[in-house]
Design a binder for these strands. Structure first.
Lengths: 259, 259
DNA sequence: CAGGCTTTATGATTCAAAGTAATGCTTCTG
DNA sequence: CAGAAGCATTACTTTGAATCATAAAGCCTG
C-alpha cells in the first residue's frame, strides 16, 4: 500500500471512532493514517455472541463500526447488571484490556461490525506519537464519565427518571457519530436489556415506558424512539450533557526539553 | 534546586500516588523527579470543604496525600449520590478536569492534604515523555473500573452485599498505599456518607452494619473496621479484586520511526 | 461543665418496586 | 403454514427499603 493510496483511503475512512476523536482533538491526515494502519482486521459478529468474557484475558481495542453491544457482569445469583450500552464509536476492550483478565463481559446486542487493533500495537504508537497516548486517556476519561452517570442514575434517580436519562444519553451518543436524527433514533434492543442496564425488572421498566408514552414525552413505533417533548424529558431526567474539553496543544519549551 | 538535591528528595518522596503508579509501571528515578517537579504546591484543606464544584471549571490534577474525599452529584430534589470515595493515592480532577466544566463535585470528608499539579503541565510532559501519557491513561482506566464496580454494586446487589463490597474495596485500596493492615482499617467517615455512596438510607445502612456485626463478619470500634471472616465477607460480596495489567514496554522499531 | 449539634441506633408504618403469572402479538423456522 | 420462541404488556401479590419518629451517645464549643 503506497502513501498515496493510503491517503485517499483515509480520506474516505469515516469510521465512527474518528468522529469520536474529533470531538476533542484535531486529527491530521497522517494521524488518521496511523490510526487506520493500526487496525488489524475487521470483524463481523452476530447478535448474542459474547465478544469479551469475564475472567479471560483480552488485549484488543475494538472500535464499534456498526451495531450495539453491552458491557455486563453476571453475578452468582444469576442477576445481570449491564454497565453500559455501547454504540458505534465506542471501544470494546476499554477498560477490559488493561487488566490481567477482564472483569466484565461484552455481548453483541445486534449484529455488529468491529475494527480491531491490538492494545500493544496502540501503545507502541503512543511511544512515538504522544498524542495517541493522550487520545487514549481522553477516551478512558469519557468511559469513566459514562459509568459515573450510570451510578447517579441507578443510585438516586427514580425509575422514570432513569429511563428518560438513558434514552437521552444513548441519543446523544448516536447523534455524535451521525447515527440518529435530532429527535428520533432506532433502539434495536429488547426491554430486558434496558432493564438490566437500569437495574429494574422488565415489567416495571415496561410500566415506565408506558408512563413516558402516556405523558406525551415519547412515542415508540417498531423500536424507534421519537422524542415529543425533549425539553420536558431533559428536565425530568436532570439531563445535562457533559462536554469534553479539547486536548490542550502544548509547545514544549526549550528548557523543559533539557530538564 | 539542583539536580542532586532533587534526586535526594525524590528518593524520600513516598507519595501515595507513586505507590499507585508502581502497580503498573516501573518508575525510574528521573521519572519520579519529573513527576515531583510537576507539583505546583501542597494544599491542606479542612473537612467539609468542597474541592471541586459541579458546574465550574477545574483543570488540576490533585493527588491525595492524606485523608478521604468523595466525588458526588447533588440532584435537584436534594438527593446526593456519591460516585466514589477517594483515598490517598487517588486523583482529584480525574475526570473533572477533562471537561469544559466539572459535572461532579468533590468534597473533603476529613482534613486532607493534596499535591496539586496543573493538567496543562502534565499534558506538556506527556508530549516529551510518552510514558506519562500512558500512566494517565492507566489511571483513568482504573477510575473507570472503580465506577463500573459501583454500578454493579448499586444496580444488582442487595444492601448487605453492597456494604460488604464497599468495605472490601476501600480496604484493598488502602492496603495498596500502605494505609491499612491486612484485616483492619480506619474508616473516618460517617454513615450518612456511606449511605449516599451505596444508594441507601441512613437507617437502612445502619441495619446492614448491624447485620454484618451480628453475623460475626466484622467488628467496629471507634470507626475502625476489623474483618473477622474476610473469606465469608468476600463470598457474600462477590468480591473479586481486579488486577491492573502493567503497561507494556515496547521498543519502537526503526521502520516505525519513519512511517 | 453545660448545652447544642452530630452521629449512631432502633422501632413502626407506608409505599414502591420486585416477583409471579398469564396473554396477545410478532417473528423465526421447519 | 403451523408450531415455537421471543417480546411486550397487563393484573395481582409480596417483599423490602424509605420514611418518620425517637432516643442514646459522643463531641465540640462557649
Amino acid at each position: 500500500m503506497t502513501g498515496v493510496v493510503r491517503k485517499i483511503s483515509s480520506a474516505r475512512w469515516d469510521s465512527p471512532i474518528v468522529a469520536r476523536l474529533r470531538q476533542f482533538i484535531d486529527l491530521g491526515a497522517a494521524e488518521v493514517d496511523t490510526l487506520r494502519a493500526l487496525i488489524e482486521c475487521e470483524l463481523s459478529v452476530e447478535r448474542r455472541r459474547d465478544l469479551v468474557v469475564d475472567g479471560y484475558e483480552y488485549s484488543k481495542l475494538s472500535f464499534i463500526k456498526e451495531g450495539f453491544a453491552a458491557r455486563y457482569k453476571l453475578l452468582r445469583n444469576g442477576r445481570r447488571q449491564i454497565i453500559n450500552v455501547m454504540v458505534p464509536g465506542d471501544i470494546i476492550g476499554l477498560p477490559g484490556s488493561f487488566l490481567d483478565q477482564a472483569t466484565f463481559s461484552v455481548i453483541a446486542l445486534t449484529d455488529i461490525k468491529l475494527e480491531v487493533c491490538s492494545l500493544e500495537g496502540f501503545v507502541a504508537v503512543c511511544h512515538r506519537q504522544p498524542r495517541f497516548g493522550l487520545m487514549l486517556t481522553w477516551l478512558a476519561v469519557q468511559e469513566a464519565m459514562s459509568y459515573a452517570d450510570r451510578v447517579v442514575d441507578i443510585g438516586r434517580r427514580t425509575p422514570v427518571e432513569r429511563l428518560a436519562h438513558f434514552l437521552l444519553e444513548i441519543h446523544g451518543r448516536l447523534v455524535l457519530v451521525g447515527a440518529s436524527t435530532e429527535t428520533s433514533f432506532d433502539l434495536p434492543i429488547s426491554q430486558e436489556v434496558i432493564s438490566d442496564a437500569l437495574g429494574l425488572s422488565v415489567p416495571h421498566l415496561n410500566r415506565m415506558f408506558a408512563k413516558l408514552r402516556t405523558e406525551g414525552l415519547i412515542t415508540i413505533t417498531d423500536r424507534r424512539i421519537q422524542f415529543i417533548g425533549k425539553k420536558a424529558l431533559c428536565l425530568l431526567a436532570h439531563f445535562q450533557p457533559a462536554r469534553v474539553a479539547r486536548i490542550p496543544t502544548v509547545q514544549p519549551l526549550k528548557h523543559e526539553l533539557i530538564a
